[in-house]
């Protein structure tokens, strides 16, 4: 019997993908958790971040720092496009527009018309290689224990990924404990009350949308480093994973998205291992192809239970729960 899935699941704790989701969820925490903006298009920000970096560095062969600038620029522009028409309207309009905009992004980059630049439905390969060649200071080699042995490039990704998560956490912590964060929390609860006190609500919401969007864009950048860039990775499912992560950890907390992302990926990995063990030994009467969907059913049920019984998430404060009102 193969129990390697246990250390492999433990490896999810610090994998670059976990870091990428944590980063994008931190951005979503700024939107939904702190500002109350129902952004259902975080996958769109991730896609644009990924494409901005890959197109700049892989397709046009420009330096990595130019790729970073493009990630920021494209995320800011996308936030402005989403925010200008919708932030003056009621909160639900933003959610409808964002979910549509994220799909527009995904379908646009897939079209054959743009395939010279975006790679069409094939996507773009090699962003991770380019990034590694340009920045990795580690010597060649492989280090680690057992199945958790990684190459120099993989270790570099882990370091970069979690350093970015740490920087984002620090930034969000500094922002939210400040008077700026206080205004944002006020807006989350009642815009008109804050407006009546002389604060430019529209401006604060736009700033929050941009900051969360740029963090989400870098989440997208991180996401493509260990794999190739595939447009279909950025469907609505990705946004819903991010919401699951966010609500799991605690939407209005700084470390909630990080904890949520770790738990999410460890549980997915563990349940996959357990299910395949049960199925391969014939203890569970389902086909191997049904394993994957069953994991997500478990995730969905867990999310429902969480929102009903602990709406503030694992790290949140009961009295600041977003679903209480």
């Amino acid at each position: 019997m193969d129990f390697n899935f246990i250390p492999l699941a433990f490896g999810e704790v610090f994998s670059p993908t976990t870091a990428a989701y944590a980063l994008a969820a931190i951005g979503l925490a700024v939107h939904f958790g702190f500002a109350g903006l129902l952004n259902f298009g975080q996958a769109g920000f991730m896609a644009l971040g990924g494409y901005a970096f890959a197109v700049t560095t892989v397709i046009f062969g420009l330096p990595v720092w130019m790729g970073f600038l493009m990630v920021i620029a494209v995320s800011v522009v996308f936030a402005l496009i989403l925010g200008i028409p919708t932030l003056r309207l009621r909160a639900d309009y933003l959610s409808i527009v964002t979910i549509a905009a994220a799909e527009i992004v995904r379908l646009s980059v897939k079209t054959p018309e743009f395939s010279d630049v975006t790679g069409g439905s094939e996507g773009i390969n090699g962003a991770g290689r380019v990034f590694n060649e340009a920045t990795n200071p580690l010597p060649d080699g492989r280090w680690g224990v057992g199945v958790l042995t990684y190459s120099s490039a993989q270790w570099w990704l882990i370091i970069v990924g979690w350093a970015m998560v740490a920087i984002a956490c620090l930034l969000v912590w500094l922002l939210t404990r400040s008077p700026w964060g206080r205004v944002l929390r006020g807006i989350r609860e009642d815009e008109d009350a804050v407006r009546s006190l002389g604060k430019n609500v529209y401006q604060y919401k736009m700033q929050a949308l941009i900051i969360g969007g740029v963090i989400g864009g870098f989440g997208g950048f991180l996401f493509i480093l260990p794999r190739s860039l595939q447009p279909d990775n950025y469907g609505t499912q990705m946004t819903f994973f991010l919401y699951t992560i966010l609500l799991l950890g605690g939407a209005a907390t700084v470390f909630g998205p990080v904890l949520g992302s770790i738990i999410f990926w460890v549980v997915l990995s563990l349940s996959d291992g357990v299910l395949s063990l049960l199925v391969s030994n014939g203890w569970l009467p389902i086909a191997t192809t049904q394993q994957g969907p069953i994991r997500f059913i478990i995730v969905g049920v867990a999310l429902m239970l969480l929102v009903i019984f602990r709406p503030q998430g694992i790290l949140g404060k009961k009295k600041e729960a977003l679903f209480s009102a």
């Binding site: 206080r182 929390r185 006020g186 989350r188 609860e189 009642d190 008109d192 009350a193 407006r195 009546s196 006190l197 002389g198 604060k199 430019n200 609500v201 009295k319 600041e320 729960a321 209480s324 009102a325």
Partner: peptide
């Protein structure tokens, strides 16, 4: 706009009280 009216010194309260209860 409302926020500029408030900044000029004319501030209102609401019929349905808007205390921010999560703060």
């Amino acid at each position: 706009p409302a926020f500029k009216v408030a900044r000029r010194g004319m501030v209102r309260t609401f019929q349905l009280t808007k205390a921010l209860s999560a703060m």
